[in-house]
Design a protein around this nucleic acid. Sequence first.
DNA 1: CGCGGATTTGACACCTCTCAATGATGGTGG
DNA 2: CCACCATCATTGAGAGGTGTCAAATCCGCG
Lengths: 249, 249
Amino acid sequence: MKTMPNDLLIARLQSHLALDESERNGLAGLPCQMRSMPGRNLALAGKLSENHVHMIIEGYACRYRDLADGRRQILSLLMPGDVIDLRQFVLGGMQPAVATLSVATLAAIPNASLFRLLEDHPRITTALWSTTLVEESISREWLVSIGKRSAIERMAHLLCETFLRLAAVGRTEGARFPLPLTQSELADALGLSTVHVNRTLQELRKSGQIAFQAGTVEIFDFNALAAQAMFSPDYLHLREMPLIGAVPA
Amino acid sequence: MKTMPNDLLIARLQSHLALDESERNGLAGLPCQMRSMPGRNLALAGKLSENHVHMIIEGYACRYRDLADGRRQILSLLMPGDVIDLRQFVLGGMQPAVATLSVATLAAIPNASLFRLLEDHPRITTALWSTTLVEESISREWLVSIGKRSAIERMAHLLCETFLRLAAVGRTEGARFPLPLTQSELADALGLSTVHVNRTLQELRKSGQIAFQAGTVEIFDFNALAAQAMFSPDYLHLREMPLIGAVPA
DNA sequence: CGCGGATTTGACACCTCTCAATGATGGTGG
DNA sequence: CCACCATCATTGAGAGGTGTCAAATCCGCG
């Protein structure tokens, strides 16, 4: 039942852009070495292999920024199928710090192999780039969330977003998905205080919109939640919407 | 005293990466057509020439996102030297809406000419790319601001940032620079209400940190303002810091 | 001169934060 | 197997920052 790392990459790329069989085969042939990060809250700086590109296979990570006085802002959530260091691969340069948010396993793909593949398959280049564009797009949506949405809207929005991102790579089960984040980590992502995250979650639970326990979220009525959050999925640039709601028991 | 459009582009690129003379000459030879946007709050969608890349010469614009219920979030400020549609030029794809925030003049450079130039000068490609990376970096910093900084810190931070960005392209005069934004536009950028922007500005004025009238800001003590905002300029990736404070009368 | 948008001011509500204490939970060592 | 400890979740009380509503003033512009 476990997808192999290459399949995950294929699924992720295809969620944005359809690939043909030769392209899929090329991706499937990519050598990749598994790498397991044993714990949560591990900074990845220096822990990634030089000359490799890394994708998250299992677990969560984040990009973040620390302020001088200890406040932290999580800039983006990285989840299975996300490539961490694609931008450096092509452009080099600066990127914010990355840390795990759970035990996680990464796949490391040698730059050289990837380069070779991209020479033969320009559309894979496009597909890879589109993942970075989607990441930017998500980042802008977070700006909207934090700037303009209320606490409960922000939380609802994040849950909708995460659900669809995971669904796109087959990591949801019906309306449930893993979200092993601490309330304080959610707070740092949403620009809220820990206490308020707690109250916000309670409100969503009490109103019957979600369940959230033991690192697993269940969304009872996605459309209602999306409406409350003013969530519209365009910015995720998914080729097709996962089937929502109509999940037979 | 007015810099020509090509000089502005050169200045902007050199603010991040030094160029040699042949590269500067190449840029100086780029044909570009001036385009003036007569008013504020003009959506640029459809108003830009196809197959051209546009740079702001004078005035301000912004990327923004509107929510269903009328709330608006300004995602980034575009100012002289900023290229609006560089990403589409290379990657195509989706970008948020752009609107002017003042009367503005743009320069339109034909894609073809730019392509030709880049073939001869790979470092110009790098320099251009780095402007998009800086834009992303600024965007992340905004996320930190809105997520973690107080109203007064946010405002101070935006003023510091804007000052340095303008200084990098020679658009400041001493400690003064143009900022012809409405308080309500500042509010949309900072994730605050108009009224609170007003009070925040008053506080900064009363504490003697800035003057702000008739669309012009003056920063009396940049370092103090930066300290209050927890502003550290690294994220702007400027090659050299403009001289601050020590501006002889 | 009068109009419309922008700024300013006031009063008030309320969302969210902070501080603090109390319960859960899970892992660890005795 | 249980006591213990750290971390996380939850709850309460209160303060304070920020938003909303509304009105007044200012200002540029036609």
